[in-house]
Structures are given as structure tokens and as C-alpha cells.
Design a binder for these strands. Structure first.
Length: 390
DNA sequence: AAATATGTCAACCGCACGTGT
DNA sequence: AACACGTGCGGTTGACATATT
């Protein structure tokens, strides 16, 4: 092998210009597109240099750069003014629903590109939500997240918690579109469904205002409901096309519980795989085991535990304390969709064995971490205050 | 007024996927 | 089947602008 497996950037093969576009280059691009139309971008620099040398000779960009310049800036249907509150609201709602699928979000905002939306989110909205006390990843109040975090490790009797949680997820994915709760408690719960439902939401005033504006005016928002149909379809399609690759690369026993993908044609991480690696390490096991301290829960809770399989832990909000396989991280939204559908589809089959087989000493792992956390917050109570009131 | 910090956004990069050969 | 190529996507970078000290 004399070359790397990674394909070199297209621009490396051409002696092309990079960096910001000049007005002159823009003019050349516009002239070219008006003459030849869009598409076949790799031909643009060649044609531009070939057709009228006097006019186009200076346009020495790679096709990718040309396409990007056109789609993100030169396209005549683009808006170049600032985002309206309505657009802002739409971005937040869609992000809560589908995460950082910028191209899909941008499709709902005429005249905006995925790059626009992405930049606006990163530059403005993420910060705005944070300042409002809302986690921009899960779209949940920080207070709730911290409260839930404090409950991990069995600080709260968890029997009804997981049961109600999985029931809620079932509801999310079995609701008809017109019943669909297009709120951060709805789809976004998929990404954050470890959040307990036993803690009442404690909204700061501005959050409340925010929620009223952003999340609670769905009754007359037919467009959003139509959109949900589309999103649902996107989820299903994505699941069908991505489930296989998303899971095949996961170390066999850690994430997927058997039967959960039984409705899919790609239940590759299966019982057989688990049998092959029966003792492999899984962080999920630690977390699950912490929810079910030995000898502390009736049968119903065990059934709930089976329902709430460890695979659901893989798509949680990135947490430095939770290690997630790369292949899973890169498919967060897809996995979330799969999770939700799995929960809706699966019955109480399968995963009891694995949950039950986790060794008792695992439960001390999260407890140790939580003890450390508790000590920190006891020693530095202002840390919590700073989070909420700064 | 100068230095530094912060924000914005256009552009790039790497990867995945589809298609044609 | 394998490969090259074109395209689209999401994450990241870095230049420039603006605000703050």
C-alpha cells in the first residue's frame, strides 16, 4: 500500500484556490450557473476554465467548493436577513424533535440553508436555551436533569419510574400523529428518557415564559403536526436503512438486547452474539444494575427492567461519565428512533437474563461516582446555585 | 487608544451513500 | 464485486467583526 485508505480531499487533486470567495469569483459562478445550470459541480472549474478563458480563467475552485458557495450563498432563493422569531421557534422545535439534522430542519425554513441553521443554532440558540436554564441537547430544564442525575443509583425507589418511563415512550411512538405531543417532553424524551417522571418540573419564570411561547401553542399549529408525520416517516426510513450498520459495529452484548429488533431484518446483535461474549464489559450494566439493587424490588420491577433494556442507555445525552461506543454516538438520532420503536414493539422477552446476570459488585460503581458527586456538592453548594441562577 | 475576549459565519474536512463503469 | 466518482451531510475551523477591559 503506497497510499492511505482515506480518500484524499478532492481539492488536493486540483491546483485549486481555497478560502473566501471574491466578488469576481461569485460573478463567474453566477454566470456559469445561469448558462449551464446547477449540478455536475466537478465540471464547473473545468468548464469555467475551458469555455471562455478570458472570462472564466480565474475560477480555479474544486467542485465541492463551487457547490457549497452556490448552495450556501449564491442561490437566488436564499434569505440573507436575520432569522425571525418564527424561524427561531421552528428551529428549536425541530431540534427538540430530531436533533442536529440540519438539512431536514433547513428544508422547513424556506430560504435558509443547513449551514445557516447550524450556525444560528451554535451561535445563538444553544446559548439562549442555556441561559434560560434549558439544556440545549435534551431540551429539558437543567434543574430536572440534575435532579434526575441525583436519583441515579437508587436514591429514589425506582420501580414505578422505569415502568412509567417505558410506558411513556410507548405512548410517544404509538400515538397517532394528531395525538403526538410535539413538545420537548415528546420526541426529545427519546434522547433523555432516563429523566425521571417522579420529579415535578420546577420551572424558572423565564423558562415558563419560554415554554408557553415555544412549546405549548401546538393546538393551532397544523403545520407542526404535518411535519411530525414527515418526521415519523423519516425516522422509520432511517431506521430501516441504518439499523443494520448502526448496530453491527457495536460490541456484541453491550447495547442491544435480544428480541428488540425482532421486527427488523437486521437483528444482528443477537442472543448468539451475547452468548459469544457473555462476560464483556458494559457500562450499561452498571447503570441498570444501579437501578435495581439486589433483593430490593418485586417481580413487576424486574419485568420493567426487561422492558427498559440497556440498549436504551446508549443514546443518552453525551455524558462524560458514560462511555458510548463511537458507532453508537454517530447514530444518536437514528438510535433514538430505533429505541423508541423498539420499546413500542418489544414485549417482555429476552433481556431479563442479562439484567439478572449482572454481578452484584457492579452496583457499587455508580454509587461510588455518585458519592463523590454528592460530596462535591455538599462541600461546594454554590456550584448548584451558580448553575441555576447565573 | 490599544489589547484582549467574544461572537459570527463562510468555508473546509471527513465521512457516508448512491451511481456508473 | 470492486472501484472511482459525485453529492450531501454534520462537525469543526479560522478569519473577521464587534464588544469589553
Amino acid at each position: 500500500m503506497y497510499y492511505t485508505m482515506v480518500r484524499p480531499p478532492c481539492c488536493d487533486r486540483l491546483n485549486v484556490k481555497r478560502g473566501l470567495w471574491t466578488a469576481e469569483e461569485d460573478a463567474k459562478m453566477l454566470a456559469h450557473v445561469s448558462k449551464h445550470g446547477t449540478g455536475n459541480w466537478t465540471a464547473v472549474p473545468k468548464k469555467a476554465a475551458f469555455h471562455k478563458r478570458a472570462c472564466f480563467a480565474g475560477l480555479q475552485r474544486c467542485g465541492k467548493s463551487c457547490r457549497l458557495r452556490w448552495t450556501n450563498y449564491l442561490r437566488p432563493d436564499l434569505k440573507h436577513d436575520s432569522f425571525t422569531p418564527q424561524e427561531e421557534e421552528m428551529i428549536i422545535r425541530l431540534h427538540a424533535a430530531i436533533g442536529s439534522r440540519w438539512s431536514i430542519i433547513a428544508q422547513q425554513l424556506p430560504g435558509r440553508t443547513d449551514n445557516d441553521v447550524k450556525n444560528y443554532w451554535n451561535a445563538r440558540l444553544r446559548k439562549k436555551l442555556s441561559e434560560m436554564g434549558i439544556d440545549p441537547v435534551t431540551h429539558k430544564p437543567f434543574s430536572k436533569i440534575l435532579a434526575d442525575y441525583g436519583n441515579i443509583g437508587g436514591l429514589v425507589k425506582s420501580g414505578s419510574r422505569i415502568g412509567s418511563l417505558s410506558r411513556g415512550l410507548k405512548n410517544v411512538f404509538t400515538l397517532k400523529p394528531e395525538q403526538y405531543p410535539f413538545t420537548p417532553e415528546g420526541i426529545s424524551n427519546i434522547n433523555s428518557h432516563l429523566m425521571t417522571t417522579t420529579v415535578p418540573p420546577k420551572m424558572e419564570p423565564n423558562q415558563e415564559c419560554f415554554s408557553n411561547n415555544m412549546y405549548n401553542n401546538d393546538a393551532n399549529d397544523n403545520h407542526s403536526l404535518d411535519l411530525l408525520d414527515q418526521l415519523q416517516a423519516i425516522r422509520l426510513v432511517t431506521e430501516a436503512s441504518s439499523t443494520c450498520t448502526a448496530y453491527q459495529t457495536i460490541p456484541a452484548p453491550c447495547i442491544l438486547d435480544e428480541g428488540s429488533l425482532s421486527s427488523s431484518s437486521s437483528s444482528t446483535c443477537s442472543t448468539a452474539a451475547q452468548e459469544k461474549f457473555p462476560t464483556s464489559f458494559s457500562w450499561c450494566d452498571f447503570l441498570l444494575e444501579d437501578e435495581y439493587l439486589p433483593g430490593d424490588h418485586p417481580r413487576a420491577e424486574q419485568e420493567n427492567a426487561a422492558e427498559f433494556s440497556s440498549k436504551d442507555l446508549k443514546n443518552q445525552t453525551p455524558n462524560p461519565n458514560v462511555m458510548i461506543p463511537q458507532s453508537v454516538q454517530s447514530n444518536t438520532e437514528v438510535g433514538a428512533a430505533v429505541n423508541g420503536m423498539d420499546l413500542a414493539l418489544q414485549s417482555n422477552t429476552g433481556s431479563d437474563d442479562r439484567v439478572a446476570s449482572s454481578s452484584p459488585q457492579h452496583s457499587s460503581f455508580v454509587e461510588t461516582i455518585m458519592d463523590g458527586e454528592s460530596k462535591i456538592f455538599l462541600d461546594f453548594p454554590n456550584l448548584l446555585e451558580e448553575i441555576f441562577y447565573n
